[in-house]
């Protein structure tokens, strides 16, 4: 009788091995469901910062337009004037500096010289301002901004202006930014909500000799074209190519105006774009190329569907 009672109590007060295993299995399943969600939440936070930074640049563009009655020039690429017979060279980002709370940096920049004339100066003299980090130009999903291989270092960024549907030399249809040209709102007859202002681009590795995303330069690799769709496997046409497999496909040795780069990002499924009205949208990499190209022209008169 004593034995039987003990046996009874044992049954009620303890777990069997199977019960324990089932509980562990359920907990394991719950963790397996939760962990990817946590990782996705981190990426969602980074994506949100990325989007916000682009929005800031959109506001800066609008403030620039309010002040100067036109958008800043896409860049000044070897523009020959009487005072600069060898060609004037100014990166795009310089013009926006006063509008992204970097007026102090802007004041250090010597507009009478080319950006590289003083590349051997150290911070912050002369155009050594190219080493000042520009956090608003960085998408946290991508890697660090410093380019170490460039002899004196430089800064890369993730947002490039819309340079049309072709190559650096041929936009095919006019885009809001061109060499020594920034559009006025009245030039954007397709509507500022239907025209791209900036697109995302990816930074090459810190030490890689590749000009893409090098915002402190006036090279064609620092702007974005819609010749091919976003995140395409089609290689970019660049002068110095460090391709890193699928991440930044490219072909090198393209000099002069034949260069062309696609919009790329590490976000799953697409890229962020800034429209001329200041809106930031997420565009799927499965967008129709016709729509994508229609978005990059400012006066093409295309009818654009949903995207």
């Amino acid at each position: 009788m004593f034995v039987a009672r003990k046996h009874d109590r044992h049954l009620r007060s303890a777990f069997t091995l199977i019960e324990l295993l089932v509980v562990i299995a359920i907990i394991a399943i719950l963790i397996a469901l939760l962990l990817p969600a946590v990782q996705q939440a981190r990426e969602a936070a980074r994506r949100s910062t990325c989007k916000n930074n682009m929005k800031q640049l959109g506001l800066a563009l609008h403030n620039y337009h309010d002040t100067h009655r036109l958008f800043p020039p896409g860049m000044i690429y070897r523009v020959v004037t009487s005072s600069t017979p060898s060609g004037k060279r100014t990166p795009f980002c310089v013009h926006l500096l006063p509008f992204i709370d970097k007026a102090n940096v802007y004041n250090l920049y010597d507009h009478n010289r080319n950006w590289h004339d003083t590349v051997h100066d150290s911070i912050p003299t002369g155009n050594g301002v190219r080493l000042v980090p520009l956090p608003v130009w960085q998408c946290p999903t991508d890697r660090d901004a410093i380019w170490s291989a460039n002899p004196d270092g430089s800064i890369r960024g993730n947002y490039g202006v819309n340079w049309g549907q072709g190559t650096f030399g041929t936009q095919i249809k006019p885009a809001p930014f061109n060499n020594a040209f920034g559009a006025r709102f009245r030039d954007i007859t397709d509507g500022s909500s239907n025209t791209l202002a900036m697109m995302e681009m990816l930074k090459p590795e810190t030490s890689a000799n590749d000009y893409r995303a090098w915002i402190w330069n006036d090279e064609p690799e620092t702007v974005v074209m819609t010749r091919v769709g976003p995140n395409s496997s089609a290689p970019d046409l660049v002068v110095n190519c460090v391709s890193e497999g699928d991440r930044l496909p490219c072909t090198g040795s393209i000099t002069g105006s034949g260069r062309s780069n696609a919009s790329r990002s590490l976000h799953v499924g697409g890229v962020h774009v800034l429209m001329c009205d200041g809106a930031v949208r997420f565009v799927s990499e499965n967008i129709d190329l016709t729509t994508w190209q229609a978005l990059s022209s400012m006066s093409g008169g295309e009818v654009i569907g949903d995207f």
Binding site: S233, A234, P235, L289
Partner: peptide, 9 residues
């Protein structure tokens, strides 16, 4: 028309 852009070296 519709479709993915692609390329290779």
């Amino acid at each position: 028309g519709k479709g993915a852009t692609a390329g290779a070296n």
